[in-house]
Simulated scan of single mutants.
Amino acid sequence: MPETTRILLVEDHPLIRAGCRRLLAQRRNFDLQEADRGLAALELNKRHRPDILLLDLDLPDGNGLDLMPQLVADNAPVRIIILSMYGDSGRVSRALAKGAKGYVTKNDDPAAILTAIDKVLEGEVYLGQTVAQALALTQLQPETPGLAELGEREKAILDGLGDGKSLAEIAADLGVTYKTVANAAGLLKSKLRIRTSAALVKFAVERKSA
């Protein structure tokens, strides 16, 4: 563990930032920088090159997950720990797939942040108690027939439906026509053995919140 550990906290809520600041102040070797926006986080990440980056997912100017590739590209050694209100298995899996080394929810014991930093600096992956329980429950549930067969575009459409987006909004996000998305939604129903569009939307929402 380095003598000084540079930490960048990316969080837009002042009260949560203040709480994290007090918690991290317990360690004299922590050098803390703070950002309340994604753009500020990108700039501080390049300038100060933190060892640990505590990243909220819901920022005023974007999604923390979308920032991760650029943060790592600008500072390859950085270890990202997600600090979020949400601990559902879908978000956790996507964060880990993008390279996060830790995931702590704001419902966990505050000391979990310090534990996460210690474990991640030692080269381990750390999941807070809330997240670990969510993943364990997901692994106990049988996989929906056909889910493993979906392509990347189909998964993106399913994610969009789970976020409450219309087919037109999903088409705009993906840069394709409405007809392309509508046809893909029809194939999704067939692959997942779901009869109606309403049932498909219900499945997508439940999958995102699982």
Rank of each mutant, 00 (worst) to 15 (best):
K191S: 02
I81G: 01
P142G: 05
T138D: 14
K46P: 00
G164V: 04
Q141C: 03
K189D: 11
V205K: 11
P69E: 03
D58W: 13
T115C: 14
T138K: 15
R17E: 13
P77V: 06
K165Y: 12
P69S: 09
L71G: 01
I170G: 00
I52W: 00
P50S: 09
G90Y: 14
A168N: 13
K46M: 12
L187I: 15
L150G: 04
E34L: 03
L114P: 00
G146R: 00
L140V: 05
L54G: 02
A25W: 06
D159V: 12
E124I: 01
I52A: 09
L53G: 09
V92R: 04
E169D: 11
L24H: 01
A112Q: 12
D56W: 03
E124P: 01
T138E: 15
I16R: 07
L127M: 08
K191G: 11
N45W: 06
Y103R: 08
A73D: 04
L167I: 10
R37G: 00
Q139F: 07
L65D: 03
K165T: 04
V131R: 06
K191Q: 11
A199I: 02
L174Y: 04
N75Y: 05
V10Y: 00
I52G: 03
V92A: 04
A112W: 05
D88K: 06
D12I: 06
T4M: 08
T130R: 06
L192V: 02
E124V: 07
R28Q: 15
G87R: 08
D31F: 13
I7W: 01
T4E: 15
G175T: 08
L127I: 05
T130L: 04
N75H: 04
A171F: 01
Q141D: 07
N183C: 08
A95Q: 08
A185R: 00
L150V: 11
K189M: 14
L158Y: 01
L24F: 12
D31C: 10
D51M: 00
D109M: 07
N63A: 12
L83K: 07
E169G: 08
G102R: 02
P145A: 07
V125E: 12
A172P: 03
A171E: 09
M85G: 15
A112V: 00
L67E: 02
A35L: 06
S197C: 00
V92W: 09
D74N: 10
G38F: 11
L83F: 13
K106Q: 08
Q139I: 07
V72S: 06
I7L: 07
L39I: 11
A198W: 03
V125L: 13
K179A: 15
L67Y: 09
N29A: 10
K208Q: 14
G19P: 06
T196A: 11
P110N: 08
S209L: 13
L57A: 09
V205F: 09
R207E: 11
A97W: 07
D74R: 00
A185E: 03
L65S: 02
T180Y: 10
L9F: 03
A134Y: 05
S84Q: 01
I52C: 03
E34N: 09
N29W: 11
A185K: 01
L39Y: 01
R195T: 14
S197E: 13
L15C: 02
D12M: 06
V104E: 07
